[in-house]
């Protein structure tokens, strides 16, 4: 019941928040000095042709009117048509979503799988050399410019050592997608040579994307575990001789994760933000790179579409986090 109410409230707030977001980006994107219509129509187009195109795109109407039209369009689930790809923005984004998802999930797995154990270790060795070292490393992880890290990794592992491919998702032309997740597709087709190739392409961007998220996970896990270690049930389990490893890795960790889970939304924000830059560096054909190109081309519909898309995804992730939190902690009593 509590969870249902939670979902309702959150969904109810999502709509006005997105509407506000759309309004902000709408206003910003219309103050452009350059004229995308002229760009689109080409250099040889006459004034009349440009005007015609402008009318066709509805860009001649007053701004509030355009905004209202856009809301109506969104309500119908239509994100408009990209001026440059001339395809529906929804289709563009959907086609590119698997690439971003694959990259983000790989980074998330790396960050969580490494970050949680490291965070626990840092907490257990609090204020000892191991903890200090991990602290420096995690602060450093948050201080690296992701595009620079990407270049350095490319320089070292792709250009110098030639162990890994420089960029792109796959060698040669992309295969016809089944799910769009190349890892899954390769497994489904039983094509393990391709699977290896896909993994090789995934490593550098995923590692780059994972680093700041990893640092964040380490810090939150450390804080959560330290807080949980103070709780009486830890003393009780120790007094009853439950193996120390079990106390830490099963009971303490479970309680600290409740607070760590609330940070997944934040983590996701870091990953999504990182994707825009990192996809551009690695020529990764995801929605981040798409958004960046759209911005460079003043492609209204695509920019708006991406923003709304990101807002919705972000909103859903935060909703899931809240639900997860409610489920993990039945009474709000964990650390």
């Amino acid at each position: 019941m509590r969870i249902a109410a939670l979902i309702l409230v959150r969904v109810a707030w999502l709509a006005p928040t997105l509407a506000g977001l759309v309004a902000i980006v709408f206003v910003i994107s219309r103050v452009i000095p350059s004229d995308p219509v002229a760009l689109l129509a080409g250099e040889t187009a006459s004034r009349a042709q440009i005007e015609l195109l402008r009318q066709k795109l509805g860009l001649d109407r007053p701004l509030p009117r355009q905004l209202l039209d856009y809301y109506g369009q969104l309500a119908r689930g239509d994100l408009g048509t990209s001026l440059f790809t001339t395809r529906a923005v929804w289709d563009d984004l959907s086609a590119r979503l698997p690439a971003t998802m694959e990259l983000t999930i790989a980074a998330m797995i790396l960050a969580v799988a490494l970050g949680i154990p490291l965070g626990v270790v840092a907490a257990l060795y609090r204020n000892r050399p191991t903890d200090h070292a991990l602290r420096v490393v995690s602060v450093a992880g948050l201080a690296l410019a992701s595009f620079w890290l990407a270049l350095m990794l490319q320089l070292f592992f792709a250009m110098d050592l030639r162990w890994l491919p420089l960029q792109a998702r796959i060698t040669g032309f992309p295969p016809p997608p089944i799910t769009g997740f190349y890892v899954i597709d390769a497994v489904l087709e039983g094509n393990f040579k391709r699977l290896g190739d896909v993994f090789a392409h995934l490593i550098l961007p995923a590692v780059t994307l994972a680093i700041p998220a990893l640092a964040t996970v380490v810090r939150f896990t450390r804080a959560g575990v330290l807080e949980t270690l103070q709780r009486p049930f830890v003393t009780y389990q120790r007094a009853m001789g439950i193996p120390a490893g079990l106390i830490v890795w099963k009971y303490v960790l479970r309680n600290s994760l409740v607070s760590t889970v609330t940070q997944i939304g934040l983590l996701f924000g870091i990953l999504l933000a990182g994707a825009v830059v990192i996809e551009t560096v690695f020529q990764w054909p995801g929605i981040g790179a798409y958004a960046f190109e759209a911005i460079l081309h003043s492609d209204y519909a695509a920019v708006m579409g991406f923003t709304v898309y990101a807002g919705v995804v972000f909103g859903i992730v935060n909703l899931i986090v809240d639900i997860l939190h409610a489920v993990l902690d039945p009474r709000g009593t964990a650390a």
Binding site: W13, T17, G20, L21, S29, V31, I32, F292, I295, L296
Partner: peptide, 24 residues
């Protein structure tokens, strides 16, 4: 508070890119 929420509804860099591209 809700207005500030709107700005937090997407990662900062997305909005920042949009704004600085628009303004030059």
């Amino acid at each position: 508070l809700r207005v500030s929420d709107i700005f937090l509804a997407v990662p900062q860099i997305v909005l920042a890119i949009a704004i600085s591209q628009t303004l030059g």
